[in-house]
């Protein structure tokens, strides 16, 4: 899961950097603060992932919450124009947001599946007397 988390956060960082840095160079419309949004979410996930190598549960929890926020922010950002029937999925900024929301959703779902279907832990069953050899 940590490796997957690392990959996801890296992809988000790359998407954000491309959308922010490459915006003007590619002749796209002027970028607003929606462009580097994947960087913020990816950065938070990356922090959580790196922390998970020291504190596994806490780190992955932070990465999971970051992904959840990524979904919410992307949906919130796109929702008003969708409600006004002005949403255009072919717009570049919307495509970046959709990519981010998709990646975060996959991450959240996989984390949830991983959580629900995690292996049963080994537990202490008590103290038993050593096995005695047959008296015969």
């Amino acid at each position: 899961m940590r490796i997957f988390s690392l990959v996801c956060s890296l992809i988000l960082l790359i998407i954000g950097i491309i959308s922010w840095q490459g915006w003007d160079a590619m002749g796209w419309p002027p970028a607003d603060w929606a462009a580097p949004l994947p960087v913020f979410v990816g950065g938070a996930m990356m922090t959580g992932t790196l922390l998970s190598f020291l504190l596994r549960r806490t780190g992955l929890q932070i990465a999971f919450l970051s992904a959840l926020c990524g979904i919410g922010l992307a949906i919130g950002r796109m929702l008003p124009s969708w409600l006004k029937e002005a949403f255009n999925p072919s717009d570049l900024d919307n495509q970046f947001l959709i990519s981010m929301a998709g990646l975060c959703t996959v991450y959240v779902l996989l984390s949830a599946i991983r959580f629900i279907f995690r292996p049963r832990p080994i537990q202490n069953a008590g103290v038993e007397p050593p096995i005695q050899a047959d008296e015969d």
Partner: peptide, 28 residues
Amino acid sequence: IGVQSILLLPLYAVILAAATIAGIGWCY
């Protein structure tokens, strides 16, 4: 797992809703 899910789901739902509201606010 069931108990943990029931306890955590509302918390995650609130976080998701808060993030969505923040996104909407940002948009406006």
